[in-house]
Write a protein that binds this DNA or RNA. Structure first.
Length: 416
RNA sequence: GUGGCUGUAGCUCAGUAGGUUAGAGCGCCUGGUUGUGGUCCAGGAGGUCGUGGGUUCGAGACCCAUCAGCCACCCCA
């Protein structure tokens, strides 16, 4: 316990049961993504640090203090990815994909953030996400939100979440709004919390979602984004709202929803739950047109979301683990030697077969039982001599003697 | 990064105002059954009490440090 290697802080093993929960979340998401025409991609978990430095914005906490960054033996400055979108944007340019627009991509994998661990917050965690590149406007926003909603529906967690929706306006709208906020809060510096005083310098919009009472008291009279929206921005948002209504997707307009990454503009949304403690966002995203120019120098449009697999996994009722269909219990060295042969033929017939339990027959039966198999095939010198297999139904204890062909047929009908 | 709570067997926890050989339940192993699980009965193994230091005649209990976990802030998936 003292000298042995330990788990690094904030890192978690996924034992079979937890892994299965994760996988079923990914499977459900993937299934819906497929139905919507999104294709799976993977990008490296490591990128040049400057991709994230520039892409996510220096004012974001992620870049400021949460990245796993280091210098390689070759002297490259690299970072473990803290999120997936910047990499997708990079890949867009790396492969000249501007030709093939619009693109619908889905990804899933580990992300890394050097934060203090807490409920629903790990240093290595897993996200899946969807990105729609090269389509823009309210229809693209709607498509992405609808996919997110559909995934939550499939997972059966939709009733535990609320969709929060906001618009941040275009880059120019946002800048004007920002200035107005800066002016307003600067005039009320005395009443601001310590954290918000800091935000005033780094990112005034973040004061909007402050949890501090003293800050919230100021919010009522604070400038609203709606007052700063250009006509086109307003229309885009209105059309999105109309579209959501048409799809029967409920939402709440959250004027204080601000996302932490600098690249967002126009539509921003989060599906939030109150069942997970303080880390309530389960799936969130928005429009990130600006990211492309920052990353690749050329304009493109994008909207997408990312979802926390651990958080979703904690919300769903864990599906049952898949079990093997039957276990082999050979008795005696002759039978022992034949177990692999029988296992091979059963497996080739599509029957999931386990063997190799240790100890006496009693102990093996117990292990087989605990592995959850529905049937045991018990055979020793007697059975081998008569060329039969004794099959035991673990549910009711019934035993049947069967020939090899009959065994496969028997198991196949019982299992399906 | 800041604050609060916690750290005793594989798991969940108990451990009186500091006092000899640290307990329970579950799990595990063995036996009751020569080739048979899930119930029952009997027995058994397993702990440097997170780690390091200190106080004391004596520390699992008290103090300090450190590490880890949890919860909240911060931030976000």
């Amino acid at each position: 316990m003292k000298e042995n290697p330990r788990l690094i802080r904030g890192m978690h093993d996924l034992l079979p049961e937890a892994y299965h929960g994760h996988q079923s979340v990914i499977d459900a998401a993937l299934q819906q993504a497929h139905l919507a025409g999104f294709q799976r991609i993977d990008t490296p978990i490591m990128e040049e640090s400057r991709l994230f430095d520039r892409g996510l914005g220096a004012s974001s906490d992620i870049v400021g203090k949460e990245m796993y960054s280091f210098t390689t033996r070759g002297g490259e400055e690299v970072s473990l990815r803290p999120e997936g979108t910047a990499s997708v944007a990079r890949a867009f340019f790396s492969h000249g994909l501007a030709q093939s627009v619009p693109l619908r991509y889905f990804y899933a994998g580990p992300m890394f953030r050097y934060e203090r661990p807490q409920k629903g917050r790990l240093r290595q965690f897993h996200q899946f996400g969807a990105e729609l590149i090269g389509a823009s406007g309210s229809l693209a926003d709607l498509e992405i939100i609808a996919l997110g909603q559909e995934i939550l529906n499939t997972l059966g967690v939709a009733d535990k979440t609320v969709l929060h929706l906001n618009t941040l306006g275009s880059t120019t709208d946002r800048a004007a709004f920002r200035d107005a906020l800066l002016a307003y809060f600067s005039a009320h510096k005395a009443s601001l919390s310590e954290d918000s005083l800091r935000r005033l310098d780094t990112n005034p919009m973040r004061i909007l979602d402050s949890k501090a009472e003293q800050d919230r008291a100021l919010l009522a009279d604070a400038p609203m984004i709606d007052e700063y929206l250009a006509e086109a921005s307003r229309r885009r948002f209105d059309q999105l709202c109309t579209g959501l209504q048409a799809l029967g997707i409920a939402y709440v307009r959250d004027h204080h929803l601000v996302r932490g990454l600098d690249y967002y503009e126009h539509t921003a949304f989060e599906f939030i739950t109150d069942a997970l403690g303080a880390q309530g966002t389960v799936l969130g995203g928005g429009c990130y047109d600006r990211l492309f120019e920052i990353v690749g120098g050329k304009p493109a449009t994008g909207v997408g979301f990312a979802a926390g697999i651990e958080r979703l996994s904690a919300l769903i009722t864990a599906p049952e683990m898949p079990k093997a269909d039957c276990a082999l219990i050979p008795i005696g060295s002759e039978a022992e030697a034949f177990a692999p042969v029988l296992a091979q033929s059963l497996r080739r017939a599509g029957i999931a077969t386990v063997y190799g339990f240790s100890g006496k027959v009693k102990a093996r039966m117990k292990q087989a039982d605990q592995s959850g198999v529905a049937f045991c095939v018990i055979f020793g010198t007697e059975e081998l001599a008569q060329d039969v297999w004794k099959v035991k139904d673990m549910a009711n204890g019934e035993e049947t003697l069967l020939s090899t062909e009959a065994l496969q047929a028997f198991l196949n009908t019982k299992i399906r």
